[in-house]
Computed example of a mutant assay.
Amino acid sequence: MSVDALPRFRAENVRGMLRHGLITVVFCCFIAAALAITQHGSWGVQMVYSLSIGLISWLFIDVGRLLISGHKEILWPSGPWGYLLVAGGVTVGFLGGNAIGDAWTNQPLLDFRSFTERKLATTIIITLTATVCMCFFFYSLGRTKHMRRQIELAQRNATEARLKLLETQLEPHMLFNTLANLRALIATDPPRAIAMLDRLNNYLRMTLSGSRALAHPLSAEFDRLADYLELMSVRMGERLRYTLDLPEDLRDTPVPPLLLQPLVENSIHHGLEPKIEGGRIAVRAHQDAGRLVIEVSDTGVGLEADRPAAEGNGFGLAQVRERLATMYGDQGQMSVAPGPAGGTRTIISFPLPPRT
């Protein structure tokens, strides 16, 4: 739906009107107290006049601004319409509110001649000042809300652009490695090279036909990972064994695309390939205390003795760490440590989205 087609009295706008109405009631109480003090009158009578004038002005201005600009993003008329709306609200509120107050107190209807000059001037000044101040207050709230939405939109667009940039860096990295391996197989084992090329075609077809959204279901990430591991199995043969464990209740959890493949690629390149007999890679997802935890463990050669466990290595790990920081801030965590039975275990975790 386009912005110009938004309904004027949508739920968000109605809620905003009601908030303005409640603030107006509170403000009218202070005005009634001010009038009672300056004019030495009854606070109850002043409350009737104040609420009548304030609520009529509020309804006139709030309904008027939505009728004029409610289908737009900024809910306030531009140009002279805004000033005319305030002037109309002050006039209608003053006359209508005084009429209601006069009827309530059994006074002659709109008989301003019964007012002393000081009383009439005070009433007009307080009414005018209060209405203008309330309009400016509500206008400032609306502008602040609009600016906050614009800032959030800019930040979201920047995050999307950053994630897309990181993804475009990761995919060629994986493709170049695969093509290099394919080139070696063409010379040494043409049948396996053909099988690997078929797997690569399937993988690229799945990748290009998939969504380019910022997130997709965890099940899609596991499916894509399975395609990649099958592609690597053509090259490594029985030296590569793997298991994928995804609980049913986590299949629809949204995650950034291409999150797990760099971790598995790192396990293959730094863990299994240097080992003559190869090994096993296990990818397991589970939830813990409201967080999604994904473990990628291998039975490869393990971490180097002179490398801190928490640093990890390789282009892929650095990109995954940066993607987590971009998407989840301090809530996204990644650790690389020796596995309990040898090899390496990489763990990433971030908050689960609230269930709808």
Rank of each mutant, 00 (worst) to 15 (best):
C133T: 11
A193E: 01
A318W: 00
M147Y: 13
A187D: 09
W58H: 14
V25D: 02
H286L: 07
T344H: 05
G93H: 03
D252N: 14
E295L: 04
S69T: 04
E117W: 10
P7K: 00
W58E: 11
S211P: 07
I124L: 14
L208P: 06
I74H: 08
M232F: 06
V336W: 08
M174A: 14
R143S: 08
R251T: 11
D223P: 06
W58L: 08
R118S: 12
T168P: 01
P108E: 01
G237C: 04
T243Q: 15
P172M: 06
A180S: 10
P274R: 05
K119D: 13
Q319I: 10
E273A: 04
V320D: 02
Y49P: 01
A289D: 14
R239V: 07
H40N: 15
E322M: 04
R321P: 03
L259I: 12
R15H: 13
P190A: 11
A11R: 12
Q287A: 14
L170C: 02
T123F: 07
R280T: 15
G96K: 12
I276D: 10
D252L: 08
I126V: 15
V336A: 10
V234G: 00
S69M: 08
Q261F: 00
G93K: 09
L259C: 05
P108N: 03
H20E: 01
T131F: 01
S69Y: 03
R291N: 10
R205F: 03
L84D: 08
F137I: 07
M334W: 01
C28Q: 12
G41A: 09
D252P: 01
L246A: 09
R118H: 13
K72G: 15
C29D: 08
I53A: 14
L18W: 14
T356F: 11
R192D: 05
P217F: 04
L120C: 11
I74V: 05
V283M: 00
R19G: 10
P172E: 00
I126L: 14
L18R: 11
A34Q: 11
R19M: 10
W43H: 13
D252S: 15
Y228D: 01
R280M: 14
E304S: 13
D298H: 04
V336H: 07
R183Y: 03
V296M: 01
A310I: 10
F94K: 09
S2M: 02
G54P: 03
L35P: 06
P262K: 10
G89F: 08
L59S: 09
M206R: 14
P353E: 00
P353Q: 01
N98I: 06
R15Q: 11
G300Y: 05
L246P: 02
T38V: 07
A309H: 12
M17A: 09
E322N: 05
G312L: 06
T346S: 13
G64Y: 02
L110S: 05
L200E: 00
G343S: 10
L229Y: 06
M334K: 11
I68D: 10
Q107M: 11
L208Y: 09
S2G: 11
L250T: 04
G237I: 06
L128R: 06
